[in-house]
């Protein structure tokens, strides 16, 4: 197997501390096409930022900014 990418946390790299749930497009990067939150072993996000990200996504879901599940499946 190829062990190429050492993934790093995008929030740490970009020094991005804005975890506001209103940034729909930002959080779209972290959910898959089913609407599930992508685990951090795949995105490389660090634990601290993954926790914040999760909160943001869940808040956005409540306000119907992000889907709980995708249209296709329903």
């Amino acid at each position: 197997m190829l062990r190429t990418k050492i993934k790093v946390c995008k929030f740490c790299v970009n020094k991005d501390e804005d975890f506001n749930y209103k940034h729909e497009r930002k959080w779209r990067m972290f959910i898959n096409e089913r609407g599930k939150i992508i685990p951090r072993r795949m995105t490389g996000t660090c634990a601290k930022h993954q926790r914040k990200l999760t909160t943001s996504i869940k808040r956005a879901r409540y306000l119907a900014i992000l889907p709980f599940t995708s249209e296709m499946i329903r």
């Binding site: 190829l2 190429t4 990418k5 898959n32 992508i38 072993r41 795949m42």
Partner: peptide, 9 residues
């Protein structure tokens, strides 16, 4: 993206 990433992990 995520499922593709698995392949080379």
């Amino acid at each position: 993206l995520n499922e593709d990433e698995i392949d080379d992990d």
